[in-house]
Computed example of a mutant assay.
Amino acid sequence: MTSVFKPLKSVNSLILVGIMASMGLAATAQTVAPAAPATSAAPAQPAAKAGEHRHDPAKMQARMAKRAAELKAKLAITPAQEGAWSAYTAAMKPAARDTSARPDRAAMRAEFAKLTTPERIDKMRAMRTQRMAEMTAAMDKRGEATKTFYAALNADQKKIFDSLPMDHRGSHHGEHHGQPHKG
């Protein structure tokens, strides 16, 4: 008789463990209000530190100009290559963001609120597809500009260019996401 209830007891234990795990996951998924700032322990961070990871277009342009100058010096660009260099650096600059073309977030939320879940999924998929197409086109443009510039280099310059890490050849991927360049 006791052997019949032993498997039942282990099944009940598994169910209980599963319920507890589910409750734990649900509890961690809840939004938690931010803690009140400490008043006495640590001094407040300076304003510059608080916005440290924000995108600063002026700083990014300064970094890009510095890196372009360093690359130009390493490659020892000749006056005859100046046109190819200018075309290359122009193509490597990120496109200016057209904020007028971006929909207002409040308007977008209102539009999404009117849609059913499947319609929202389809809308998000279409937006993602468009964004990916734009990014692919920009990467293709930069790739072709790099190939054209590379063709204008002499053999020694090509060796130097080939030896550089990708982020020193005009790709500034990490800098777009608030990550400082290391190098």
Rank of each mutant, 00 (worst) to 15 (best):
A26M: 13
K158A: 00
R102D: 12
W85A: 03
V11M: 12
A68V: 06
K9M: 08
I160N: 02
A110I: 04
H53W: 11
E175P: 03
K158Y: 00
T78A: 04
R125W: 05
A138W: 04
M139R: 15
P46K: 08
I77A: 00
F5N: 06
L14Q: 14
A26R: 06
T148K: 14
A87W: 08
L16C: 10
P34Y: 02
A84L: 05
R125Q: 08
A138N: 11
Q157I: 01
D140P: 00
P34K: 04
A48P: 01
L16A: 14
A80S: 12
L153T: 03
K49N: 08
A96P: 00
R125G: 06
P7F: 05
M60A: 14
S3A: 11
A76Q: 15
A38H: 08
S10P: 01
P46L: 08
P46S: 12
N12P: 01
M20N: 03
R120K: 13
A133V: 03
L75G: 03
S86N: 12
A138Q: 13
I77K: 04
M135E: 13
D140S: 14
T117G: 06
M139S: 15
K114L: 04
E111H: 13
A58V: 15
M1C: 05
I160T: 10
K72H: 07
V4T: 14
P43I: 07
A33F: 05
A47Q: 14
W85M: 01
M127D: 11
L16H: 11
S171G: 07
M132H: 09
L8Y: 05
L8E: 04
R169C: 00
L8Q: 07
A80K: 08
P46A: 08
H173L: 13
E119Q: 15
A145Y: 02
K59H: 06
S86R: 04
S40D: 13
F149K: 02
A41H: 07
F5K: 09
L115P: 03
F5I: 12
S13E: 14
A151R: 10
R169T: 03
D56E: 12
P103L: 10
H181R: 10
F161L: 07
A68I: 05
N12M: 13
T148H: 04
A42M: 12
H181C: 03
G24P: 01
G178M: 02
P94S: 07
A113F: 02
T2S: 10
A113D: 11
R131C: 05
A138L: 10
V17C: 06
S171H: 12
K9P: 04
A69I: 09
A58S: 13
K182W: 06
R142C: 01
A91M: 01
K158G: 00
R169S: 06
A36V: 15
K147N: 08
H53S: 11
D98M: 07
L164N: 04
K74W: 00
A69S: 13
A145M: 02
M64A: 08
K93S: 13
P46Q: 08
T117H: 09
S86V: 03
K74A: 00
H172P: 00
M64D: 03
A137L: 06
R131V: 10
A68E: 11
